[in-house]
């Protein structure tokens, strides 16, 4: 467990920064970057666990997490592109307001 200590402490700021970005940011691209930061925290701890415990399971899980979060990030990029083409904004709140305004018309 002691071997994992530094890795766990390293993930705390990454997780907090990522979570803040996911919750507080309005820009879809910044939200995606925040997601990747949380993903980095996940992979760090999986990799550290794989080394410390000598279990390849950690590497496999880290890789899977990387793939899953990567795919979701790619989907977000695709949606962000579509949003910009449709309404010319990356801002989720502005986008929602414009969308609701469109519905009223």
């Amino acid at each position: 467990m002691s071997e994992l200590g530094p890795a766990i402490w390293a993930t705390v700021p990454l997780f907090v920064i990522g979570l803040y970005g996911l919750v507080a940011r309005r820009n879809l691209v910044r939200i995606m970057i925040s997601l990747e930061i949380v993903g980095a925290a996940t992979v760090t701890i999986m990799g550290a666990a794989a080394v410390a415990l000598w279990k390849s399971m950690g590497e496999v899980l880290g890789l899977l997490a990387l793939i899953a979060i990567g795919i979701e990030g790619a989907l977000l990029i695709a949606t962000a592109t579509l949003m910009t083409r449709t309404l010319g904004t990356f801002d989720v709140i502005v986008f929602k307001k414009k969308d609701e305004g469109g519905e009223e018309k």
Partner: peptide, 21 residues
């Protein structure tokens, strides 16, 4: 997607912590 991604990030980080611990 935003909520799904948020949940995915927590799920994998939770799994990582569980595996490490």
């Amino acid at each position: 997607l935003i909520f799904s991604v948020f949940a995915a990030a927590m799920l994998f980080l939770g799994l990582a912590f569980y595996f490490a611990g």
